[in-house]
Design a protein around this nucleic acid. Structure first.
Lengths: 301, 301
DNA sequence: GCGCGCCATACGCCTAGAGATATCACGTCA
DNA sequence: TGACGTGATATCTCTAGGCGTATGGCGCGC
């Protein structure tokens, strides 16, 4: 990249004069007196090495060299003005792109609201959403592959990431409609002998451990016969009679024939949905999204 | 057009740093010490209003705002560098466009040489040639519709135009091959009774007047039966038997069946081909072309 | 724990250049 | 011929900013 030789102010003066073709008017248009404009043009012509305007009595005209320079000058000025505006918009979080990872089940609950609300407040921002389970989201946040995570059961010990709970919900039992317990509220211990369908532990260790922990607390170890990476699939498998499951209440929105959702006792355990971000992320969009997700100010580490 | 806010030097520093992503290296690349570079970037960030780089220990990265500004800055810089180079090339006459009007008959003599020679010396220059008779060339020069004229018999009293004779040639008689005089040299007076075919006076009053003047000097007034705007046509009409003509010798290059060219006596009269230009034209290409057309300034008789 | 690499900060110097005012030179036109 | 319009020149002021040296803070690796 070559060292720039032409001050922008002079190019600006040049462009305006090329439009007006009249020193006095151009100077007025620039908000300066006429002699300074003459100087600007002269300096520019000195740098270029050739006359850019031909001054004949009564009329000012562009020389061929001036005609050659004009479009480049114009483009440079508009490019810079546009680029500056764009950079400011992005910097202030009025525009740009935000990459959001989300757990599939959230597409049924908080995600649509979030997209709608944020989209209305920041119409210039492109939201790039991608479905991922919890563990990959954590990795992607570290790798800067996503800027925001929407996940269940934030892991502990993540010093570089911030988490804020945005939703807390109880668990429900997922049962085949034909299951004997599908009639009313389920005592957790009653599931002790049923085969279980669950997400693989790798997808979200915290939630997995929480679910198996609930079973343990109820006095049994779940017999897991099948893993599936999405709750949607888990429900389908349950509906097909492969087993039962324990899931966050919001998956009740998944309406599948032959699948029943039942409250469990004890119902105190809750799973938390959290928004996650890099604590050191300076991106204004991240701050805006955090503010959107819970208007009361976040903690700023 | 908006007033430019960003000094080009800072944008240059920005672009280089965005390429190197290392203050020390970028500064070295720019040929300055590191602290000034830090200052440049800081000033630029102040003007933009947002950080353009994120300085984490060990690595420098572009922020989203920086990524937004970078292409605009790059484009502006290259646009200006290219535009400046182009303007200089045009200003120094190494590039650009030259509009040349020429009399049709010269396409047979000096024009090809001129195009070849000039084209070799200035390969970047586009020569825009257009056929025109003398009078329209004069008008076009005044109107700046052409930059150079190649014409016969430059008119007198043109204070704004310069002329230089580049060729001087005698007249020849143009006769039908069957004409009784087509056998040898023609005495001008012998044409007194033949009908004449000539260019219209408006196409080039000087040449027209010169030709009719020759006749007058030979003791007769030519009986003009037909006008034609091109010598090519005049020859064709002569060949068709409509009449005879007097023409500059170089039109002998027009080989048409049934047309004969004969020396005339007295053979002292000559018609001059001249190059014409606006005296106040600052275009370097015009100067170059004048130098090409006759490297040693005099006119030959 | 110590040095080193990397970037920021703090001064100080100095020039380019942007601005103003006053004036001049040179057309044109009434 | 004199007023006017237009652009160039001369001269002065002022300051933004570009550069340097010196120094400070902070991770990181040996």
């Amino acid at each position: 990249m070559a060292r720039p030789e032409l001050p922008l102010a002079q190019l600006h003066a040049f462009v305006v004069l090329a439009e007006e073709l009249h020193f006095g008017h151009a100077a007025a248009h620039l908000g300066i007196a006429q002699p300074p404009l003459s100087q600007q043009i002269r300096r520019l012509e000195d740098k270029v090495g050739h006359a850019l305007f031909s001054r004949e009595p009564g009329r000012v005209t562009l020389t061929p060299a001036g005609r050659e320079l004009l479009p480049a000058a114009r483009r440079a000025l508009t490019d810079l003005a546009d680029g500056l505006a764009a950079a400011r918009a992005v910097g202030s979080g009025q525009a740009g792109r935000l990459r959001i990872g989300f757990a599939a089940s959230l597409a049924l609950t908080i995600l649509p609201d979030l997209l709608r609300t944020f989209g209305q407040r920041f119409p210039g921002v492109h939201l790039d959403i991608r479905e991922m389970t919890t563990a990959p989201q954590i990795t992607a946040l570290h790798d800067k592959a996503i800027d925001i995570g929407l996940l269940r059961e934030p892991p502990a010990g993540e010093v570089e990431l911030g988490f804020r709970t945005v939703l807390s919900e109880p668990f429900v039992a997922v049962l085949p409609a034909t299951h004997p317990l599908a009639a009313g509220t389920v005592q957790l211990a009653q599931l002790a002998d049923s085969p279980f369908v669950l997400l693989p532990r790798a997808a979200g260790p915290q939630l997995y451990d929480q679910i198996t922990g609930l079973c343990t607390a109820a006095g049994f170890t779940p017999h897991i016969v099948q893993h599936a990476v999405e709750w949607q699939t888990v429900c389908a498998l349950v509906g097909a009679g492969l087993g039962v499951s324990l899931a966050p209440a919001s998956i009740r929105r998944i309406r599948l024939k032959g699948v029943a959702f039942r409250r469990v006792e004890p119902g105190t355990a809750r799973t938390r949905v959290a928004v996650a971000w890099r604590k050191n992320d300076q991106n204004a969009l991240v701050k805006h999204l955090l503010a959107t997700v819970s208007p009361n100010p976040p903690d700023r580490p």
